[in-house]
Each structure stands twice: as C-alpha cells, then as structure tokens.
C-alpha cells in the first residue's frame, strides 16, 4: 500500500499555465527518469494518474470490509437481542426468523460501507491535516482556482533533471529532508 497523503511532502514545485502544459511537463519528467511526482490541480485530471504512474485506489476493499462488518454485525446483534436475550412473540413470528432481520442487515451493511469509505478517504488522502508545506509556496492558492502545479520530491534521484524541466520559476518547499 502506498503511504497516505500526498506523494511529495518536500520538494520543488512549479506552476504551469494549463492542463495540456501540465501533462506535457509530467511526461517530460517521466522521460528524464523522475518517479516521485505530485500534481496540484483545480479538478481531477485523469490522464495525469496514468502519466505519473499513480496506483489504483483500494478504497473498494475498505468498503467491502465495512459492508461485511455492518451486515454481519447487524444480523448477529438482531439474533442476540431478539432470539437470545429477549425472545418475545412479535406478530407470531419465531424468535429467530431470517426475513424480518433482512432490512436492518442490509441497511447496516450500506452504512458500514459508507462510513468506511469516508473514513478511508480522510485517512488515505490525509484530509485531516489542515496545513501542508506546499501551502507556503507563493501563489499556490491558484491550485484551487485555475492553476496547475507540478511537484517533485527532493529525494528523487533525478531531482536535478526535474529542476531543469520545471524551469527557473520553480520553488523549493518543505525544507531539506
């Protein structure tokens, strides 16, 4: 599993005029052997994930775990309460009856999946840290408006080549490792 949060915490970052320039620069970085790349964009640029070789998200696994946990837990709880701890005759149904247990089992499976997905995205995308070093770069706020930024980790072996691609306008951020 890749680490949570952004791929680059300290490094060098530069702003590019648009999506096409961003993709071109990212390809150039890859061509010169750079591997630890991160981008900051105002919207999701799908092609970029391929270019920088981002792994597939595995939130679906978490969702499945949540759904299973929610469903099994809910069924078990219903059995425990209504068939074991407090078996009363409700509507002439036997204490343990599958059919009336189904609705809550399904609902809790969905709830478990939903909660796990949200917890998962908060954790994996590190959405609980309100500040990141890259915020200190002058003009970085354009990343949430119309700016396309490309960053390379300072520890990348090909950092010198990266600086060349990103040009003179690039900023260092996050200090040295």
């Amino acid at each position: 599993m890749t680490p949570a949060g952004d791929a680059v915490v300290r490094g060098v970052v530069a702003e590019l005029p648009d999506e096409a320039a961003l993709l071109a620069a990212a390809r150039a970085l890859r061509a010169s052997g750079v591997t630890r790349i991160e981008a900051y964009t105002p919207y999701h640029v799908e092609e970029l994930d391929e270019v920088i070789g981002a792994p597939r998200s595995r939130l679906a696994v978490l969702a499945a775990v949540g759904a299973l946990g929610g469903g099994v837990g809910a069924y078990a709880l219903q059995w425990l309460l209504d068939a074991y701890l407090y078996p009363i005759d409700a509507g002439g149904r036997p204490p343990h009856m599958v059919l009336p247990f189904v609705p809550i089992t399904i609902e809790m499976a969905f709830l478990g999946a939903g909660l796990c997905v949200v917890a998962g995205v908060l954790w994996r995308a590190a959405l609980v840290r309100l500040w990141a070093p890259v915020f200190e770069v002058p003009g970085f706020t354009s990343a949430t408006r119309a700016g396309f930024w490309l960053a390379v980790d300072v520890r990348d072996p090909a950092i010198a080549a990266a600086r060349e691609v990103l040009g003179a306008g690039a900023h260092d951020f996050g200090g040295q490792p």
Binding site: T2, G5, D6, A7, E38, A39, Y40, T41, P42, Y43, H44, V45, L48, D49, I52, A54, S57, L59, A60, A63, A113, V117, V118, G120, V121, L122, R124, A125, A126, L127, V128, R129, L130, W131, A132, V134, F135, A143, T144
Partner: peptide
C-alpha cells in the same frame, strides 16, 4: 480539511465519491 487538490487526493476523492 486541508484539501490541496493533489493528484493523490483527487484520485482517492473521485473513487470515494463514486462509491
């Protein structure tokens, strides 16, 4: 929540939103 618009963030956000 400290959203940066990073490619790593977007990728996960999109999957989470879809799911």
């Amino acid at each position: 929540l400290g959203w940066r618009g990073s490619a790593s963030g977007w990728r996960r956000w999109k999957v989470a939103y879809l799911m």
